[in-house]
Every structure is written in C-alpha cells, then in structure tokens.
Design a protein around this nucleic acid. Structure first.
Lengths: 244, 244
DNA sequence: CCGTAATTATGGTGTAGACCAGTATCCCTT
DNA sequence: AAGGGATACTGGTCTACACCATAATTACGG
C-alpha cells in the first residue's frame, strides 16, 4: 500500500513551483516574506522555510541573505570540454558578465601547493581571488594559484580577463591540457559571504589544473559556483571500440 | 569587524567532520542517534539535525531512512567525456557494481518524447528503468527511452549490462555521438524511494542523448544520482586558438 | 533638501515539546 | 528452533515561541 500522505512542506513547494512554472512569478521576482507565507497558508514558519529550502536546492529560487527569496533565472550552459572563457560564454548566451578582483598576493609554496601543483616548497606562487558576476549577480568566486617562477610580475597586468591569454601573450606559456574536476558541495564561510548567500548553501565545486608543454602545472584554479547557476553540457564523440 | 560567533550547528558539524577526517569514524560507520547527539552536546535535536544535514550536503555522511546516519565512502570518479560503462568504471576503481531492472515497458511516443527524441507521436518507445548499486548500495536510478522502431524486441534481451553493446551487436546500431547534460538537483518521490533516501535529498541529475550515424536520437537516458557518490573528472586537450 | 538616527520588518538561529511511521529487538508462544 | 507479535527506538514532520543581526523604511534634525 502506497503512502498517499504528502507533507505540508512539499505541498507548499508544489504550489510555489507551479506559480513559478506558470510565470505567475517572474525571474528575480521577490516572494512574500516567510511570516506572510506562514500566515496565508496557515503553516508554521519552520515548515515554510523547509519548503523554501527545498525550492532553493532545486534551483527554482534563491535567497539574498536577510533580504528575502527570489525566483531563479534559467541556468547558464557550460561545456567543460571546451576552452571558452567565462566572459565569452556568458556573452554568447545573452548576458552581461563581469570580473571583480578580490585580492592578489604572492606567497611561498606550502606543502599543499607542492602536492597539488608540484611546485617546490618555498618557491613563489601567485594567488589571485576573483568574483564573477552575471547581470550584476555574483555567481562564483575563484582562487587561482599560478606558478610565479614561470610568470614574474603577472599580478601587475590587468587581471580582469582571461589569464590564459595573459600567460600566452606575455610569457609565451601555452596550456597544453587541463584537468577539470567537479562535484556538488556547499559554499562555506568566505565564499558564501562573497556570494551573499548563507554559509552552507548548496554549490558546485570545480577545479581546473592547467599543464604547459612540459606537463608542468602552471595554474591551479578552484571555483566555487552557486549551484543553481549552471548546467554542465558536453558533446561526446564516439570512437570505434567502446562499451556504453 | 568580523563576526566571530560560530553557530552551534556549525560547531557540531566541525566536530563530526573532524572525527570523520581523523578516521575516528570509519566509512559506513553509524553515527550516534540524533537524540543521543542532542544529549551529549546539549543541543536541541533540531539543531543537531541542522548539523547532520549540513554534513550530508557536503557528502561526508549519508542517511538510511529512519535508520540513522552513516559515514560516506570516497567518491567514484566519472569521466563523462569517455565512453566507459558504469560497470567497467566501478570495477576499475576497485568496487563491485550491480544492475537491477526495475521495470520495462513499451509505450507510444508522447509530446514530450517527440520533443526530446524527435520520435513521431504514437510511434513505439521502449522504457527501461534500472537501479545501479556499488558494493550493494543503490547509487542511481535511470530511465532509459529507446526508439523502439530501430530495435524491436530489445526488451527481451538481457538488460543488466551495456545497452550500447546490445544495440550494436543485435541491431547494428552504432552511437556516433552523445550529448551529456547535468546539474545538481534533489531526488524526489520515486527516485528517492528506490535509493532509500528521503524525498528532496540532494542529487545529481544527468541526461544522455545518444545519436546514431544518421544523427537520429536512438536513446535518451535520465540518470538520478545520489550527489555524494561521484566526482566528475575530465581531461581537456587544448587546441591552437582558444581564450581561457 | 539631504544626511542621520530611530524604528520596523526580515531572515538566521535556537529551544521545548509533540506525534507519526517505519526499523530493530526481544520475548513469548508454538 | 522457528515464527509472530508487542515494544522500544529511530528519524520525519510539525507547532509555538523566542532572540539576534541586519536590511529597509520612516522620522527627524540641520
């Protein structure tokens, strides 16, 4: 026998999801306050929040911390197998991208840097932290580590565009291959603050390890995305002998 | 001035995360019950659950519905750009995969099927629902739609292995390219039940659209993954003219 | 008219308690 | 020894309330 009872928080979820689908609520529209929803649907505020957080995890709504809940716009497509820059990709889909430099510094390679990048302990490393926005909304923060021995003075160049282009044009470094890793993970402390979300909000963690012609790690990039911003999409061409 | 106050639920999170990292708690080990944690750390059960759900969303722990919370094992690597079958991929990483047929049926193409697969309305479509496990634990359910006109009788063949192999060997169909899409999304109702998780638990939604030599959609696969199971990893080779 | 201070409203965090629906266990009966 | 039923326990859902920090708004004073 099936359980036909649907919890209140899922019913409210369905109601609101329906309103969004039928465009009763437009993109970036503000939802009523939690207390107001609580009153109109005669539910406890805790239950209302359960429904809202459900919708958030589905990517249908997002929140501005201590300000309210808003309807999410459609996702941005991202193809990790292609080397299209963030700026170009966003523009190609009809939106306005922006890059904000949060901080830049040079530090000595730690044990961790040695492990992930193969840079000898104490050697100089550039650390660049940037925030990217789409249509004025912060969608990701990134921490970029660059082997400073290969590109001294990099941080004095204009850093609000493609780093790969800078490396190629100013230092003759060509990225031959890039390793991309990603998995869903919540945004914590610092990243959450930059993105104006509550600590622990769902996110997508993506790393990019770029190797040069000599198979040396030039750049190690950690990207913390809001989870509801992107949809990963790639085309796979099938070679002769494969199984699935 | 920074806010130095750390909420109780995050402190408990940190404590438990530390225990897991230092292997005080082993993989698949059961955590104390919510009420017990509530008592030992002198916190309300709601607050304890907040910490547990935080750890769940980070992929550090998972839950068996109404049974308890357990420590997650490491993630499985998955390269969407390669055509390695689930079975091979799991085995290659030292685990035991299994495929369970949930249901199989033939139905007439709906409007939705027409849109996504380009099959004319009313034409026959095979629908296969499977569940995949790793070391005995259900990790994903998949709904596979196959253009039945191209492969009559497919459902009478053994379906617990690679479909692509069946299509090639029995029908001479070769998949020339596959479109892979994915984004984080919670598991709802049916999928959640199959995976023994609570409705709304975090997940990863992945679709695979396979085209044959004539660029016709042969197979449309929807996969609902537990979010903590996989890490997507792929290598990108850089061509001559790219930006980032 | 503008800038600032006070007020109000909002979401974020937390407590205490309750009931329900499944799971696991143990004990009793056969 | 095996089966079955009562029972304790677990997580899942929900209420009612409270307090805080910050955002938005209003009121006030120069």
């Amino acid at each position: 026998m099936k359980d036909l009872h649907i919890p209140f928080y899922l019913r409210l979820r369905d109601k609101l999801a329906g309103d969004i689908e039928r465009s009763v609520l437009q993109h970036h529209a503000k939802l009523p306050s939690e207390r107001e929803l609580s009153k109109t649907y005669d539910l406890n505020r805790v239950t209302v929040r359960q429904a809202l957080m459900q919708l958030e995890s589905e990517g249908l709504i997002y929140r501005l911390i201590r300000r309210g809940w808003y309807v999410s716009p459609p996702r941005l497509f991202y193809d990790p197998s292609k080397n299209i820059s963030f700026m170009d990709n966003v523009r190609a889909q009809g939106h306005v991208p922006e890059t904000i430099i949060l901080s830049k510094s040079e530090l000595a390679a730690s044990v961790w840097t040695n492990r992930t990048m193969g840079i000898e302990l104490g050697a100089p490393v550039h650390l660049l932290r940037r925030c990217r926005t789409i249509d004025g909304r912060a969608v990701l923060v990134e921490h970029i580590h660059v082997n400073a021995t290969l590109c001294p003075g990099l941080l004095d160049l204009p850093l609000d565009c493609s780093l790969t282009a800078l490396l190629r044009e100013h230092y003759g470094i060509r990225i031959s291959r890039t390793r991309v890793n990603m998995y869903p993970a919540p945004l914590n402390g610092d990243q959450a603050a930059e993105l104006n979300v509550v600590a622990g909000a769902p996110g997508l963690f993506l790393t990019r390890t770029s190797y040069d012609q000599n198979d040396q790690v030039v750049e190690f990039d950690q990207e913390f995305w809001r989870h509801d911003i992107i949809e990963i999409a790639l085309d796979v061409l099938n070679n002769a002998a494969d199984s699935e």
